[in-house]
Design a protein around this nucleic acid. Sequence first.
DNA 1: CGGCATCCACAGTGATACTG
DNA 2: CAGTATCACTGTGGATGCCG
Lengths: 212, 212
Amino acid sequence: MRSYGQACGLAKALDVVGDRWTLLIVRELIIRDACRYSDLLRGLPGVATNLLAERLRDLEAEGVLTRAHAPPPVATDLYALTARGRALAPIVEALGFWGAPRLAEDLGDETFQPHWMVLPLRKLLNGGAEASVAVRADGEAIAIRSGGGRVEVSLGPAPDASTRVEGPARPVFRLLTGRIGLEAAAGLGVRVEGDRRSLAGLVPRRAQAADS
Amino acid sequence: MRSYGQACGLAKALDVVGDRWTLLIVRELIIRDACRYSDLLRGLPGVATNLLAERLRDLEAEGVLTRAHAPPPVATDLYALTARGRALAPIVEALGFWGAPRLAEDLGDETFQPHWMVLPLRKLLNGGAEASVAVRADGEAIAIRSGGGRVEVSLGPAPDASTRVEGPARPVFRLLTGRIGLEAAAGLGVRVEGDRRSLAGLVPRRAQAADS
DNA sequence: CGGCATCCACAGTGATACTG
DNA sequence: CAGTATCACTGTGGATGCCG
């Protein structure tokens, strides 16, 4: 992208992350931490592969991410945020929260990938409750662990979880953000097994329309 | 801009403010509050006038700003942020802070407009000090009032100020952010009149390289 | 298969000129 | 002053091909 040529912090930031797709790439890396090129490609439906390659090169040159050749078992390059890149996390979350009201509208024709739930869940879930939940939404596993005021939400399985939630991504997300109840969720194909009480403590009472 | 078509808050936010120039327009409105088309055009060097007009139309349609016909004395339309638009302010400030380290580099060929100092000054100045400063940088007036933990920085004159700072924008900015001292600033053409003590209380001791 | 590079039709951009 | 019109140019999205 062309530089704005303005001696202003915002303009400088946009010189780096103002390109189309760039902040969405950062979002993917915040959610997934280190991941492969193909993970990014799948997590960014609509991006052209050459464009993704170009953006990754730019972001590496700007010091936002690193590309490292992974040790033998993986045999591929891994992309991960640098400290400077991770410093974008609160901004990405705030922007996601700002844009969330628009999620209430046209929900039909849009892509919904389960892992996009991770960021809003980190913000919305109640860290005061003690809970360990294994979520499986549209086949993708998300692990939630909360307690002592902190919530950890990450991709991947949680074998030791005391609660299991499984079903289509949208209703699962609505259940976890408190926008529908257990019965409504069940009617939409969501199955909940195990400790329902700690799940209830985790879910916010009346969430605003906030996704990521 | 084409929608990303992703059911994700960040993608939705970028559908609205992810276009080139859009966040810079929001920056101008945060700094200036209500202002005219030509103010925006001057505050955004490099933007094409048709592009500015298009963005303003889009942002109005999205509910980020309003365009109001001003009462008789002005006789022109005024653009101002809505509550939804003002909700972007912390994000714009955070992004500006994130991009600020790059301001240390290539300072030569870039445009520097004095009013861009307003946002970083709001963050960096020490609100504990009691001070009222009238700044004139490159001919543009900025008023600073601080006390009781709060800092107000706005465009325009401050006739009742107890301190007056005047000079070229860059050294004035460096002085106010604590990156150079009074003597160094004087050597760069900055004149300080009046109460120097309250100015010293206002300026942070050792500012990081943070502009807006 | 993962990780790109190439090609092309098209939408968005930037500079200038022009208008109510 | 506040835009609209025009037009050359650049960036994007989509398809496909290549290579270890």
